[in-house]
Simulated assay, not measured.
Amino acid sequence: MGIPIRRGSRQKRRGPFDLRRTTFGFALIALILAGGGMALRAAWRSAGNHPVAAGALTVLALATAVVVLRRRRRARRVAGAVTDAAYGIVDAGLAELDAAEAARAEQRLEPPEAAHPVDYAQLDPYAFEEAVAELCRRDGCADAEVVGGAGDLGADVLATTPDGRRLVVQCKRYGPDNRAGSQDLQRFGGTCYAVHGADIALVVSTGGFTEPALDYAEQCAILCYGPEELAAWSEGGAPPPWAALEEQDAGLSAP
């Protein structure tokens, strides 16, 4: 009894089905076919104006059909080669997309660079005011601007916090042995709310504050940022003053 011989499949085994690869492949083939159809349509319209050319085009199409019918096997090989080339282009494009996405993901995972410490006490008064305004802009107060100068009535920086509150800041660029006193706070307290309409009043002093100044600030709900608080805010170790105030109010209201 003869042993049946199983003929090996002439088709290569395909890998697992990839929806994205197949979709891109069909899209590429569709573009190729559409381009070929448009070219054929343009050629047909051009030949329509010349009967002889139209006849030649018809004969050429018939001859092509005969060749294709006679050489179906070869046509299948050509079609397979075209398909493989199309999938090769698709795979290369997908590989580039994956590489680009991986690069973007790696950039997102990189930790942000730590802010370089700034010695605010070494800045001149105007540069210090501009530095405080820049901190406000960095943390969401896009309209922060320096308004200090003659006739500023105690306001050096005006801004709007991300949640819409009006922030009024007075900047005291003092040396380490010159702390902001209660008189400084009283002058600011007399204008920050009544004149400037502050929702949040903040005094930033590179020299710190005296105890009477801190007592007055607490009575008038004025935030006081000395060198330690300013450094923590600047270097990202603490939230901005308006966010810290929210956390403080939430802690006081908690049962």
Rank of each mutant, 00 (worst) to 15 (best):
A127D: 14
A127E: 13
F128A: 06
F128Y: 11
F128I: 15
E129F: 10
E130N: 14
E130F: 15
E130T: 12
E130V: 14
A131V: 12
A131D: 06
A131M: 08
A131K: 07
A131E: 09
V132L: 02
V132I: 05
V132T: 11
A133V: 12
A133E: 11
E134F: 04
E134M: 10
E134S: 10
E134H: 10
E134K: 13
E134G: 12
L135T: 11
L135A: 12
L135R: 15
L135K: 12
L135P: 10
L135E: 15
L135Q: 14
C136V: 06
C136W: 15
C136S: 13
C136D: 13
C136H: 12
R137P: 00
R138Q: 13
R138H: 15
R138Y: 14
R138N: 15
R138M: 13
R138E: 14
R138V: 15
G140P: 14
G140R: 01
G140D: 04
G140F: 03
C141Q: 07
C141A: 11
C141G: 08
C141N: 08
C141E: 14
C141V: 10
C141I: 08
A142M: 06
A142D: 10
A142C: 12
A142Y: 07
A142V: 10
A142H: 09
A142W: 01
D143H: 05
D143P: 02
D143R: 07
A144G: 12
A144D: 11
A144M: 09
A144K: 07
E145M: 08
E145N: 12
E145I: 12
E145Y: 05
E145S: 05
V146C: 11
V146E: 09
V146T: 07
V146H: 11
V146R: 12
V146A: 11
V147C: 15
V147D: 09
G148A: 11
G148F: 04
G148S: 06
G148P: 06
G149V: 07
G149L: 02
G149F: 15
G149M: 10
G149P: 07
A150E: 13
A150K: 09
A150I: 12
G151T: 04
G151E: 07
G151C: 06
G151K: 02
D152H: 03
D152E: 04
D152R: 00
L153I: 01
L153T: 00
L153P: 03
L153A: 05
G154R: 00
G154M: 01
G154V: 01
G154L: 00
A155R: 05
D156S: 02
D156K: 07
D156M: 02
D156C: 11
V157C: 06
V157S: 02
V157A: 03
V157M: 02
L158E: 07
L158S: 02
A159D: 03
A159N: 03
A159F: 01
T160S: 04
T160V: 02
T160C: 05
T160P: 06
T161V: 06
T161I: 03
T161K: 12
P162S: 00
P162M: 01
D163N: 09
D163T: 10
D163E: 11
D163C: 11
D163K: 13
G164N: 02
G164C: 02
G164E: 00
R165A: 00
R165T: 01
R165D: 00
R166P: 04
R166G: 03
R166F: 09
L167R: 01
L167F: 08
L167T: 03
